[in-house]
Amino acid sequence: MSRRDPNELRAKLLDHGVSLLMQQGYHGVGLQQLVQSAGVPKGSFYNYFESKEAFGAEVVTHYIDPFIRQLDGHLQKREVKAADALRAYFDELIAETERRDFKGGCLLGNLMGEIGDTSELCRTSLREAVHRYRDKLREGISRAQEEGGFRKDLDAKEMADLTVDLWQGALLRMKIERNVRPLVQFCDFLFQAYFKA
Rank of each mutant, 00 (worst) to 15 (best):
R87M: 12
E120D: 11
F67S: 07
F195D: 07
K152T: 06
Y133D: 04
F49N: 00
A156E: 13
L71T: 01
L71S: 03
R173D: 13
G56S: 03
I68Q: 08
R3F: 05
E53Q: 00
Q32T: 14
L75D: 10
V18L: 01
M1P: 07
V184Y: 14
A193E: 12
A83T: 07
V164W: 04
L21F: 02
L183C: 02
Y194A: 03
K77P: 10
R69S: 11
V40S: 03
T61E: 05
F189I: 06
D188N: 06
I115Q: 00
R100Q: 08
Q185W: 03
F55K: 00
A11R: 14
K52W: 10
Q70G: 10
L121K: 00
D161A: 11
G116Q: 07
H131F: 15
D101C: 12
G56W: 12
E147M: 00
G148T: 03
Q32W: 02
P182F: 06
D117T: 10
L14Q: 10
E98Y: 14
L172H: 04
E177Y: 15
H74V: 02
Q23Y: 01
I68L: 15
R99H: 13
A54G: 07
R10S: 08
Q33V: 05
M22Q: 12
Q70V: 13
L71R: 01
